[in-house]
Each structure stands twice: as structure tokens, then as C-alpha cells.
Amino acid sequence: MALFKLLVNGRNYEADVDPETPLLWVLRDHLGLVGTKYGCGIAQCGACTIHLDGEATRSCVLPVSAIGTAKVTTIEGLSSTGDHPVQLAWDEVDVPQCGYCQAGQIMTAASFLKHNTKPTEEEIEVAMSGNLCRCGTYHRIREAVKLASTKLK
């Protein structure tokens, strides 16, 4: 066990955990931030996607000891009032079916759109194909990413 200082969603946290503990479980079990989801644990589904210094990262394979001073952003901190352009677009298109994958989808999309503000359909597919949606909401996800790109400020 070791004490880790983490900056998550602009707040300072401390967690006394095994250094190997993936960030996913630190967030969920120790910090009470359960918006980041567990789907596979091996970087295959994207449900656990968070931002590490703004970049989409799979938290299920990221040991807490590897974070250092990097800033962590989770779905809870993507925007303070749930009005990030991607969240607004997701609601407008009514994307979620069961909803379980959507935090990961949103985090992936938000980071992608930072780099590519006017993506083509193919670019969206490439960017989003690492995130599984077992319910098959892919058509709406694609549409929502497109819509979100028009809402970027």
C-alpha cells in the first residue's frame, strides 16, 4: 500500500492503495466516482475511458502509480453542469439505450473532437471503433459526434 495524491476533476484526492491498482478501481471504490465503468479490464471496450491531461485513456489498465502529477478528468468532471457540447449532442440525439457504455463513448468523443473539430464520417468511425456498445447504438453515436462538432465553441 502507498499513498497517492491525485488531481481529479480539479479536486485533490488521496488514496492509500496498492500501487498496481488500476485508476478505474481507485476512482470507483476509493473516490466514489462511479461514472467511469468497468467493461473488460483489458483495454478492449472503452467503457473506462477518462482523460489524462486531456487525452482519452483507458483507466482499467492504468496503474495509479503511473499517473504522477497528470490531471485526471472523468465523466463527472467533463463539465460542471453536464452541458459539454458532446453531452448536449448525446441528449439531443437520445443516444443511450442501456447507457452503460456511454460515459466511455462521451469521453472518447470529447477528446477526439479537441483534435479534430471538423471530422469526416470515416474519421469518426476510426476514432470511435475502440469503444464497444453492446446495445448497438453506433448509428446514434456517430450522429451525435457529428452534431457535437457543430456545437464546439
Binding site: 461514472g35 463527472e76 453536464g82 443511450p96 447507457g99 456511454q102
Partner: peptide, 10 residues
Amino acid sequence: DNPKILTGQP
């Protein structure tokens, strides 16, 4: 449930 799903509420 969109408001909760999209902001990661339990």
C-alpha cells in the same frame, strides 16, 4: 435517465 447517464451519476 439521460441526465444521469450522460454525467456519470450512480
